[in-house]
Protein backbone atom coordinates (compact mmCIF):
# COMPACT_ATOMS: atom_id res chain seq x y z
CA UNK A 1 0.00 0.00 0.00
CA UNK A 2 2.97 2.29 0.28
CA UNK A 3 3.23 4.93 -2.36
CA UNK A 4 6.82 5.78 -3.32
CA UNK A 5 5.82 9.26 -4.44
CA UNK A 6 5.45 10.32 -0.86
CA UNK A 7 8.07 10.44 1.78
CA UNK A 8 6.01 9.69 4.87
CA UNK A 9 8.81 9.35 7.37
CA UNK A 10 8.64 12.13 9.87
CA UNK A 11 4.98 12.87 9.31
CA UNK A 12 2.17 11.94 11.64
CA UNK A 13 -0.25 12.33 8.80
CA UNK A 14 -0.53 13.94 5.40
CA UNK A 15 -3.75 15.20 3.87
CA UNK A 16 -3.60 15.35 0.08
CA UNK A 17 -6.31 17.13 -1.95
CA UNK A 18 -9.03 15.74 0.24
CA UNK A 19 -12.60 16.16 -0.99
CA UNK A 20 -15.79 15.04 0.65
CA UNK A 21 -19.28 15.26 -0.74
CA UNK A 22 -22.51 14.27 0.94
CA UNK A 23 -25.63 13.57 -1.05
CA UNK A 24 -28.67 14.81 0.82
CA UNK A 25 -31.80 13.98 -1.16
CA UNK A 26 -31.23 15.67 -4.51
CA UNK A 27 -28.68 18.12 -3.17
CA UNK A 28 -24.96 17.49 -3.05
CA UNK A 29 -23.18 19.14 -0.14
CA UNK A 30 -19.50 19.68 -0.79
CA UNK A 31 -18.10 19.71 2.71
CA UNK A 32 -14.44 19.57 1.72
CA UNK A 33 -13.35 20.92 -1.64
CA UNK A 34 -9.75 19.90 -1.77
CA UNK A 35 -7.71 20.31 1.39
CA UNK A 36 -4.02 19.53 1.66
CA UNK A 37 -1.65 19.87 4.58
CA UNK A 38 1.01 17.86 6.36
CA UNK A 39 1.37 17.27 10.05
CA UNK A 40 4.99 16.54 10.94
CA UNK A 41 5.70 14.40 13.95
CA UNK A 42 5.79 16.43 17.12
CA UNK A 43 3.57 19.15 15.74
CA UNK A 44 0.71 20.75 17.69
CA UNK A 45 -1.95 21.85 15.22
CA UNK A 46 -5.16 23.66 15.98
CA UNK A 47 -7.83 23.34 13.32
CA UNK A 48 -10.21 26.27 13.33
CA UNK A 49 -13.10 27.44 11.32
CA UNK A 50 -16.68 28.63 11.61
CA UNK A 51 -19.49 26.13 11.57
CA UNK A 52 -20.09 24.84 8.07
CA UNK A 53 -16.45 25.27 7.17
CA UNK A 54 -15.86 21.51 6.94
CA UNK A 55 -14.05 21.37 10.25
CA UNK A 56 -16.05 18.44 11.61
CA UNK A 57 -15.82 16.60 8.31
CA UNK A 58 -12.06 16.97 8.32
CA UNK A 59 -11.97 15.76 11.90
CA UNK A 60 -13.96 12.64 10.96
CA UNK A 61 -11.54 12.00 8.09
CA UNK A 62 -8.49 12.47 10.27
CA UNK A 63 -10.05 10.16 12.85
CA UNK A 64 -10.62 7.53 10.15
CA UNK A 65 -14.30 7.48 11.04
CA UNK A 66 -15.21 8.30 7.47
CA UNK A 67 -13.57 8.07 4.08
CA UNK A 68 -12.99 11.00 1.72
CA UNK A 69 -14.77 11.05 -1.64
CA UNK A 70 -11.42 11.65 -3.27
CA UNK A 71 -7.91 12.48 -2.21
CA UNK A 72 -5.70 10.68 0.27
CA UNK A 73 -4.92 10.57 3.92
CA UNK A 74 -1.55 9.08 4.66
CA UNK A 75 -0.95 7.66 8.05
CA UNK A 76 2.60 6.36 8.03
CA UNK A 77 2.91 4.59 4.71
CA UNK A 78 -0.77 3.66 4.39
CA UNK A 79 -3.42 5.55 2.46
CA UNK A 80 -6.45 5.38 4.70
CA UNK A 81 -8.75 6.53 1.91
CA UNK A 82 -8.55 3.12 0.26
CA UNK A 83 -9.31 1.04 3.30
CA UNK A 84 -12.44 -0.88 4.20
CA UNK A 85 -14.41 -0.63 7.41
CA UNK A 86 -12.45 -3.28 9.34
CA UNK A 87 -9.10 -1.89 8.29
CA UNK A 88 -10.19 1.57 9.39
CA UNK A 89 -11.15 0.13 12.77
CA UNK A 90 -7.67 -1.37 13.08
CA UNK A 91 -6.09 1.97 12.22
CA UNK A 92 -8.24 3.69 14.84
CA UNK A 93 -7.28 1.24 17.55
CA UNK A 94 -3.57 1.29 16.69
CA UNK A 95 -2.63 4.72 15.35
CA UNK A 96 -5.11 7.31 16.61
CA UNK A 97 -5.78 8.66 20.08
CA UNK A 98 -9.21 10.27 20.42
CA UNK A 99 -10.14 12.96 22.91
CA UNK A 100 -13.73 14.18 22.70
CA UNK A 101 -15.54 17.25 23.90
CA UNK A 102 -17.87 15.20 26.09
CA UNK A 103 -15.09 12.86 27.35
CA UNK A 104 -16.95 9.78 26.09
CA UNK A 105 -15.86 7.37 28.73
CA UNK A 106 -17.74 4.07 29.01
CA UNK A 107 -19.93 4.23 32.08
CA UNK A 108 -19.77 0.61 33.16
CA UNK A 109 -15.96 0.50 33.15
CA UNK A 110 -13.50 1.78 35.75
CA UNK A 111 -10.83 4.37 35.05
CA UNK A 112 -8.16 1.82 34.28
CA UNK A 113 -10.51 -0.31 32.15
CA UNK A 114 -11.52 2.78 30.17
CA UNK A 115 -7.88 3.50 29.49
CA UNK A 116 -7.46 -0.06 28.15
CA UNK A 117 -10.39 -0.04 25.71
CA UNK A 118 -8.31 0.68 22.53
CA UNK A 119 -6.00 -2.22 23.45
CA UNK A 120 -9.01 -4.50 23.91
CA UNK A 121 -9.96 -3.98 20.29
CA UNK A 122 -6.47 -4.79 19.05
CA UNK A 123 -7.65 -8.35 19.58
CA UNK A 124 -4.79 -9.58 21.71
CA UNK A 125 -4.90 -10.25 25.41
CA UNK A 126 -3.33 -7.57 27.56
CA UNK A 127 0.32 -8.05 28.26
CA UNK A 128 1.76 -7.31 31.68
CA UNK A 129 3.59 -4.35 30.15
CA UNK A 130 0.34 -2.96 28.76
CA UNK A 131 -1.31 -3.33 32.17
CA UNK A 132 1.52 -1.42 33.79
CA UNK A 133 1.46 1.18 31.04
CA UNK A 134 -2.23 1.92 31.54
CA UNK A 135 -1.67 2.38 35.26
CA UNK A 136 1.37 4.55 34.52
CA UNK A 137 -0.75 6.71 32.19
CA UNK A 138 -3.40 7.11 34.89
CA UNK A 139 -0.66 8.26 37.24
CA UNK A 140 0.66 10.66 34.61
CA UNK A 141 -2.72 12.39 34.34
CA UNK A 142 -2.95 12.46 38.13
CA UNK A 143 -5.54 9.76 38.68
CA UNK A 144 -3.36 7.05 40.21
CA UNK A 145 -5.57 7.05 43.31
CA UNK A 146 -8.77 6.57 41.34
CA UNK A 147 -8.03 3.56 39.17
CA UNK A 148 -11.17 1.75 40.25
CA UNK A 149 -13.51 4.72 40.13
CA UNK A 150 -16.31 4.88 37.61
CA UNK A 151 -16.69 7.88 35.30
CA UNK A 152 -19.77 9.06 37.22
CA UNK A 153 -17.61 9.43 40.32
CA UNK A 154 -15.22 11.84 38.58
CA UNK A 155 -15.41 15.53 37.74
CA UNK A 156 -15.40 16.73 34.14
CA UNK A 157 -11.72 17.61 34.21
CA UNK A 158 -10.84 14.26 35.71
CA UNK A 159 -12.89 12.47 33.09
CA UNK A 160 -11.13 14.37 30.35
CA UNK A 161 -7.79 13.43 31.82
CA UNK A 162 -8.84 9.78 31.77
CA UNK A 163 -9.76 10.28 28.12
CA UNK A 164 -6.30 11.73 27.44
CA UNK A 165 -4.67 8.77 29.16
CA UNK A 166 -6.87 6.50 27.03
CA UNK A 167 -5.78 8.32 23.86
CA UNK A 168 -2.14 7.58 24.70
CA UNK A 169 -2.43 3.91 25.60
CA UNK A 170 -1.95 2.65 22.04
CA UNK A 171 1.04 4.95 21.48
CA UNK A 172 -0.73 6.68 18.56
CA UNK A 173 0.65 8.61 15.59
CA UNK A 174 -1.27 11.61 16.88
CA UNK A 175 -3.86 12.66 19.42
CA UNK A 176 -7.00 13.92 17.76
CA UNK A 177 -8.82 16.21 20.18
CA UNK A 178 -12.26 17.50 19.27
CA UNK A 179 -13.05 20.62 21.31
CA UNK A 180 -11.45 18.99 24.34
CA UNK A 181 -12.08 22.01 26.56
CA UNK A 182 -15.55 22.84 25.29
CA UNK A 183 -17.31 21.48 28.36
CA UNK A 184 -14.80 22.67 30.94
CA UNK A 185 -14.46 25.80 33.04
CA UNK A 186 -11.44 28.02 32.53
CA UNK A 187 -9.43 26.55 35.35
CA UNK A 188 -9.87 22.95 34.13
CA UNK A 189 -9.37 24.12 30.57
CA UNK A 190 -5.99 25.44 31.63
CA UNK A 191 -5.15 22.12 33.30
CA UNK A 192 -5.96 20.23 30.14
CA UNK A 193 -4.08 22.63 27.87
CA UNK A 194 -1.04 22.41 30.10
CA UNK A 195 -1.26 18.66 29.92
CA UNK A 196 -1.34 18.87 26.12
CA UNK A 197 1.68 21.17 26.14
CA UNK A 198 3.55 18.78 28.37
CA UNK A 199 2.73 15.88 26.08
CA UNK A 200 3.74 17.91 23.03
CA UNK A 201 7.02 18.80 24.67
CA UNK A 202 7.58 15.08 25.17
CA UNK A 203 7.21 14.65 21.41
CA UNK A 204 3.54 13.79 21.03
CA UNK A 205 1.77 15.04 17.93
CA UNK A 206 -1.53 16.74 18.74
CA UNK A 207 -4.28 17.79 16.36
CA UNK A 208 -6.86 19.86 18.14
CA UNK A 209 -10.12 21.07 16.70
CA UNK A 210 -11.46 24.20 18.36
CA UNK A 211 -13.38 27.35 17.69
CA UNK A 212 -11.82 29.29 20.57
CA UNK A 213 -9.04 31.67 19.66
CA UNK A 214 -7.56 31.43 23.16
CA UNK A 215 -7.16 27.72 22.74
CA UNK A 216 -5.82 27.87 19.20
CA UNK A 217 -3.18 30.41 20.23
CA UNK A 218 -1.67 27.80 22.55
CA UNK A 219 -0.90 25.48 19.62
CA UNK A 220 2.25 25.69 17.55
CA UNK A 221 0.31 26.03 14.34
CA UNK A 222 -3.18 27.02 13.30
CA UNK A 223 -4.98 25.68 10.24
CA UNK A 224 -8.13 27.61 9.38
CA UNK A 225 -10.83 26.28 7.13
CA UNK A 226 -13.50 28.19 5.34
CA UNK A 227 -16.18 26.83 3.00
CA UNK A 228 -14.43 23.52 2.68
CA UNK A 229 -11.08 25.01 1.75
CA UNK A 230 -7.94 25.89 3.61
CA UNK A 231 -8.16 29.59 4.43
CA UNK A 232 -4.75 29.88 5.97
CA UNK A 233 -2.12 27.78 7.71
CA UNK A 234 0.33 29.60 9.92
CA UNK A 235 2.73 29.03 12.79
CA UNK A 236 2.13 30.64 16.18
CA UNK A 237 5.31 32.36 17.35
CA UNK A 238 6.64 31.42 20.76
CA UNK A 239 5.67 34.89 22.02
CA UNK A 240 2.03 34.46 21.00
CA UNK A 241 1.83 31.14 22.77
CA UNK A 242 3.44 32.38 25.96
CA UNK A 243 1.28 35.50 25.98
CA UNK A 244 -1.84 33.39 25.54
CA UNK A 245 -0.80 31.13 28.43
CA UNK A 246 -0.04 34.11 30.65
CA UNK A 247 -3.32 35.75 29.72
CA UNK A 248 -5.25 32.59 30.57
CA UNK A 249 -3.62 32.32 33.97
CA UNK A 250 -3.97 36.01 34.77
CA UNK A 251 -7.63 36.09 33.87
CA UNK A 252 -8.55 32.98 35.77
CA UNK A 253 -11.39 33.76 38.18
CA UNK A 254 -10.24 33.95 41.76
CA UNK A 255 -11.68 31.19 43.84
CA UNK A 256 -13.89 32.51 46.59
Amino acid sequence: MSNPKFETDGFACRVVDMKKEYVLKSETVRALRGVSFDVPEGDYVAIMGPSGSGKSTLLNMLGCLDKPTSGSLWLGSDDVATMNDDQLADIRSQRIGFVFQSYNLIQQLTVVENIQVPLFYQGKSLSKAQQLRSIELARMVGLAERLDHRPTQLSGGQQQRVAIARSLVNDPFFILADEPTGNLDSRTTEEILQLFEKLNNEGRTIILVTHEDEVSKRAKRVVRLKDGRLQWDRQNSQEVREAAAKYAIDNMPVEV
Binding site: L65, D85, D86, A89, S93, N104, I106, Y121
Partner: peptide, 16 residues
Protein backbone atom coordinates in the same frame (compact mmCIF):
# COMPACT_ATOMS: atom_id res chain seq x y z
CA UNK B 1 -25.86 4.30 20.94
CA UNK B 2 -23.23 6.64 22.25
CA UNK B 3 -21.25 3.83 23.86
CA UNK B 4 -21.35 2.00 20.54
CA UNK B 5 -20.03 5.15 18.84
CA UNK B 6 -17.21 5.45 21.37
CA UNK B 7 -16.25 1.83 20.95
CA UNK B 8 -16.29 2.12 17.19
CA UNK B 9 -14.12 5.25 17.35
CA UNK B 10 -11.67 3.47 19.63
CA UNK B 11 -11.23 0.64 17.16
CA UNK B 12 -14.14 -1.77 17.58
CA UNK B 13 -15.11 -3.47 14.34
CA UNK B 14 -18.71 -4.20 13.42
CA UNK B 15 -18.23 -7.79 14.44
CA UNK B 16 -16.90 -6.69 17.85
Amino acid sequence: TREIGIRRALGAKRRD
